[in-house]
Design a binder for these strands. Structure first.
Lengths: 192, 192
DNA sequence: AGGGTGATGTCAGTTACTGCCATCGACCAT
DNA sequence: ATGGTCGATGGCAGTAACTGACATCACCCT
């Protein structure tokens, strides 16, 4: 028999999400999360850097998956299309965890501190895209713009996916959002 | 003679920027900032909500100025053009404070916590733009996309403005960045 | 003169987070 | 099996961000 119950980090994530949802983020202490997971506060901080990070477990994997997917886009795709290619590929990452995503999203929306952290993760996605695009030979200025635009699509598509009563796939929302972006940026209003 | 030295908040902002630049953000305590401003820690927290907020004084004014400027854009401008109109208008806000902006930017870049807060302010700008655009009659989905894209332009233009050795105006960088965005989103690569 | 006001000070308390050392089952080498 | 190392955890003390409650006291108004 193992010395400790397995998957301490997983238990902490579950306890944190539950407590943040039940009582609210600010009203929950790290000691309470640790206690519910059968651990101590000190151990919590060995698994997660701070009180917020416990809700952002998949972000590194997501970032790597997105970067890898964009890397695999056909070489002749435009920067924005390459990003869109990657976004559609990672759709399953969300589609498979819909219930969890809804809960997590509701918790994050309820706390400015958590929103800040989410924005930071979003920014890391932008940086990862810039790196991949530049490696594809895209000029830095263009890469930055394509990455920002791509993550805007990522974000708005996610918001729509969360709210979609029909529960259509994430990839579908990406396609729709990307089409809207293209419609938006056609050159200045036609004369007349 | 006044009971206290005037402009306590201003002194705190100056002290904080100086100390963050000299010693680094993490190595500076709020008590030290307050002491340099001739105040106590408790008084610091009456002027600023937390250790980060002291660096984001102009953000509310900037947000209101941008919203007002977009509001004044000609009614027949496309959503994105209306935002661009607003961005050019607020250019003086930056051009007049170049030295300060450089120092502040260097400090923020050096600390993840400060970057998080800056992303939050950026997000507030997006929200303000969405509100203004919707009031102009733009459909919510389009408004969200135009706001996101517009703030991407805002942000990248700012980064280039900061790094520009020729110190050209902020509005010029907005124009260039916007043109790049339009070039980026033209429909998928032409055949052949 | 006297009372109200507002910016500040003082102090005690909570909680996030960190460094250091102790514990002790598991695992490995002999 | 013996002994030693390892790795995840606990315990504890300490720092610093932030908050609430109350006191102070020049200024202002009447």
């Amino acid at each position: 028999m193992a010395r400790w119950e397995p998957d301490a980090a997983g238990r902490l994530r579950q306890a944190a999400l539950d407590l943040y949802a039940e009582r609210g983020y600010e009203e929950t202490t790290v000691a309470e999360i640790a206690a519910r997971a059968g651990l101590t506060e000190r151990t919590y901080f060995r698994h997660f850097a701070d009180k917020r990070e416990v809700l952002f477990h998949g972000s590194t994997e997501l970032q790597e998956a997105l970067a890898a997917a964009v890397e695999e886009a056909p070489a002749d795709e435009s920067p924005l299309d390459a990003v869109a290619f990657g976004l559609r590929r990672i759709g399953t990452f969300f589609d498979e965890r819909r219930a969890f995503s809804l809960r997590r999203h509701a918790v994050i929306r309820s706390s400015p501190e958590l929103q800040e952290r989410e924005l930071m993760k979003r920014d890391a996605l932008v940086a990862a895209l810039v790196e991949v695009l530049e490696r594809r030979g895209v000029a830095p200025a263009t890469a930055a713009l394509a990455a920002e635009s791509g993550i805007s699509v990522f974000h708005l598509a996610y918001a729509r996916w969360i709210e979609d009563p029909d529960e259509r796939s994430y990839a579908e929302h990406v396609d729709e959002t990307l089409a809207s972006l293209r419609a938006l940026t056609v050159s200045p209003a036609p004369t007349g």
